[in-house]
Structures are given as structure tokens and as C-alpha cells.
Amino acid sequence: MNDLRLRLGQNLGLLLAIGLFLLFWLVYNGLHPKGFSTAVLIQNANESFVIGAVAMAQTVPVLAGGLDLSVGAVMTLVNCLASVLVNGSGWQMVLGIVVCLAAGTLAGWVNGVVVVYGRIQPIIATLATGAVYIGIALFIRPTPGGDVDGDLSWALTNDIYEFCATYGLFDDGEAAWLAPFAWIPMPLAIMLLVIFLVWIPFRNSVTGRGVYAIGSSEGAAYMSGVRIDRCKIAAFTLAGFFAGLGGLYLALQTSSGNADVPQAGAYTLNSIAAVVIGGTSLMGGSGGAICSLIGAMVIRAISFNFRIFDIAPLLQPLFEGIVLLGAVSIGAARVFRVKNRLELLG
């Protein structure tokens, strides 16, 4: 019982985020004329994937006590790259996807190297590398446009049935054993794959635990023999991979690439907000990518409701801002319980 209470207490932020998401999402589906249908689910999953991936990207450096202001830029860079590479014959597309993900990972690795060996504060180092990545993105795609394979784009932004049908897998998706899963949207399936194949193994690895340890106390982690340099570089590299995944998906979703500087900035800022709403501490050491994914879904679920409640477009930014400010201020409640102000000061 005590154990359960402790666990609940430690994950209060995450529970709050899940509650908020369920609230907004259930209200949305309840009032939507086609609520709780596969079509709505697919649409929601599509719209949440990129922000979710970018939020997961932001989480990893934050866990290590840093901040990555270049996630939006890496996302944009890979988006532009994908709009050039992901088309042609089957193997060309596979190669293009691999190159895109590798480019994102490489960008993250460069961030890590600059932070670790350049010994520059992450926030300012990634500010600078972000400018470089945006520059490269503009170089690849000076004007919005590009061409992404239509079949692939259709298959990956629909449910599993359509994916199988498009590529003739499992009797065009009609196989009996597939039926229970056929409704799952592809973005959701990809996200689950990434979580189980990338994030959870990373979190449980020595390096991943090191990232958490560094965020809790860098000095103590160093004294305990955690390989600080390796863990930090790994954190930024993984961030690059997640951001690249988001950029690749954005290219599939929009069938084009766009080196949009304000959009990159907006994704970076939203990723920080998602991390905070998901309950990951900006000081590092607690939380996780799944928390941030839920944080991102909260942000998206709020904007879904704008359509239902028919809020004037002019009021939407204000509404979003107030909800965002309110959500990040909820954590402040603890301030009023603390008796000794010294505990609040770093």
C-alpha cells in the first residue's frame, strides 16, 4: 500500500497529464458526430505524431539536465531531406528513409559532441546548431515543395488494414488473425514500435540509466563511475533520431518539405511545453519519453476541441496560451505546502 502511494506520488505529473488527455479526448469524441470511430482516431493519431515525436526528442536531453533548442530544426531538416529522397522505386524509398533517420541521428550526435567536448551550455549550443540545421534545410529546399511517394504516404497515414492492402501483405490485410488489429492507425503502431524497440531498451540500458543519474546529480553520477560524456552524447543522439522520425512523418503527412523557420521554432517551444505537461522535470532526472508523448497528446487534444466547440479562430491562440500557462503552473501548488523557503532555492 505504501509502495503504491509512493509510486503514485512520484508519477503525479504523469497521472495528471493522462487525466487531462482523457478528459479532452473523451469530450471531443463524445461531441463529435463520428466520435470513437476509426476515421477520427486515425486523424487524431496523424495530427499528434509529429509533435509527439518532437516532444520525445526533447525529453532525452532534458532528462540529462540539458535542453535541446534544435529539435524543431532537426525535424525541419529531415522533413526537407525526406521530400527529396523518399520516392522512386521500393528500394530507393527504403534507402531514403534510412538516410533520413540517419541524418537526424547524426544531427543529434553533432549536438552531443558540441555540448560534451565543446563544453558549451546545451541551451546555447543547440541554439547555434539549430541555426545551422535550418540553414541546411533551406539549402535543400529554398521553397516549399517536393515529392513523396503517394502510396507510401497513404499507407503510413492510415490504419494497418490499408497498409497491408496497399502493399499486398497478409492477403491484402484480410487475414483472419489480423482482424483484431486492423483498425490500429499506422502512426500509433509506429509510435508503439519505436517505444518498445528504441525507447524502453534505451531506458533500461546502462547508458539510459546514466542519463537519469546525470540529471539527478551530475557530480554524484561522475563519482559513481557513470560515463558522463558517453551518456550525454547518447541522449542528444537519441533526441536527433526522434526528431528525425517526426520530420520524416511530417513529410509523409504533407507530401512535401518546407524549411519554415517559425514552424521549427513553434515545434521546439511546444516540445518543451509537452515535456513539462507530461510531468518530466526540467531539472532532469525524472520522467520519460512516454510522459512527454502524453503531454504532446494533451496539447493536441485541446486543439481538437476547438473544432467541436466552434471557438472563433481568433480566440484559439489565447485559449491555447491560457491552458498552457495554467498547465505549467499546476506544478507550482507544491510551493504553498513548503514551510522552509530554503528548500525551494537552488
Binding site: Q316, P317, G321, L325
Partner: peptide, 21 residues
Amino acid sequence: RVPSMIFTLGVNAVMRGFMVM
């Protein structure tokens, strides 16, 4: 005691909302 990075970000979003409105 909200981290300044996130609080000022929220305030920025609110101000943007006010101005758009």
C-alpha cells in the same frame, strides 16, 4: 517557482493570443 523558461514561454503564448484577439 515555475522555471522561467517555461513560464515566460506560456506568458508569450498568452500575449500572442491577446494580440491576435
